[in-house]
Amino acid sequence: MTGAIVFDLDGTLIDSAPDIHAAANRMLADCGEAPLDLATIIGFVGNGIPHLVRLVRQARDIPDARQDEMTATMLAHYTAHPADLSTPYPGVRSCLADLKACGYRLGLCTNKFRAPSMQILDALELTGFFDVVIGGDSLPVKKPNPAPLQAAFDALGTERLLYVGDSEVDAETAQRARIPFALFTRGYRKTPVAELPKTFAFDAFDTLAAHLPALVAR
């Protein structure tokens, strides 16, 4: 089989929220502020670190003038410990290995900056599965703008088969790029599954491949 499949990272391939939570609370501690709980931080994930920092500031009534300083602090804490607590979701490695073995070309498109994304992929031994990695700073725009996803598929250079993600941002990105979308239901979305546009939804990576022959046939 041939075709290109692009994946989101946070909440799709890996549960990265514990490391993001830890870095955010280290940032808040540096500012003399109280920590936020994990559920709150999960609600802020999906649009990249600068956006997350903005929401953290708002939650603690920290002035806008500190945005750049706090973003730099958050990035420093996160890149120092990007994968201490993060883990791939069950079945991810075997799913990616099987897809590669079947001839699919695989890419990654995330709103996380590319450098920490590569650190995480290396630490979790996932790097070798991907022919291209597009980060939140790879282009002037981020998801849900379709350009990063389109750039990932362009780099893969074959039929645009499927985008796999977990969130409202991913669903909108796929819709705007006119790419079939698979929604992983165990990630960080806030909206009910039934309300998100998708080609199909799945809750375990050992079931993903079963959906592909129908997409290839189309």
Rank of each mutant, 00 (worst) to 15 (best):
L183H: 06
L215C: 07
R93N: 13
L156Q: 03
G43I: 03
G165V: 01
V6Q: 05
I134T: 12
V6C: 13
G107L: 02
E33N: 04
C102L: 14
D10H: 03
L55G: 09
P192C: 11
L9S: 07
Q58K: 15
A97Q: 12
Y104K: 06
R66M: 15
S167D: 03
P50C: 10
A59N: 07
I20S: 04
D137W: 10
A151T: 05
L196F: 09
I20M: 14
T40H: 11
G32E: 15
P140D: 12
D137R: 09
G43V: 00
A214H: 06
S86Q: 11
L55S: 12
M70E: 10
L99T: 00
T158N: 10
D170L: 09
C95M: 15
D166K: 01
M74T: 02
N25C: 07
N25P: 01
A155H: 12
A39G: 07
D203K: 07
V92K: 05
R93Y: 08
D131T: 04
T110V: 06
H51C: 12
C109W: 05
Q119A: 13
A182S: 09
V193W: 12
L55C: 10
R66I: 04
G11A: 10
F44W: 08
P18I: 06
V132W: 07
C95L: 14
R160V: 01
Y163E: 09
T207E: 15
H51N: 15
S138C: 03
D8V: 00
G103R: 11
D166L: 00
N47R: 12
P116Q: 06
V169F: 08
I134K: 09
C102D: 15
A171L: 06
M74K: 08
R189K: 14
P63N: 09
F153H: 02
P50M: 13
G48S: 06
A65C: 10
M27S: 07
V216C: 13
A214L: 12
F44C: 10
T173P: 02
L52M: 14
A34T: 08
P90T: 01
E172C: 01
V56E: 09
D131E: 15
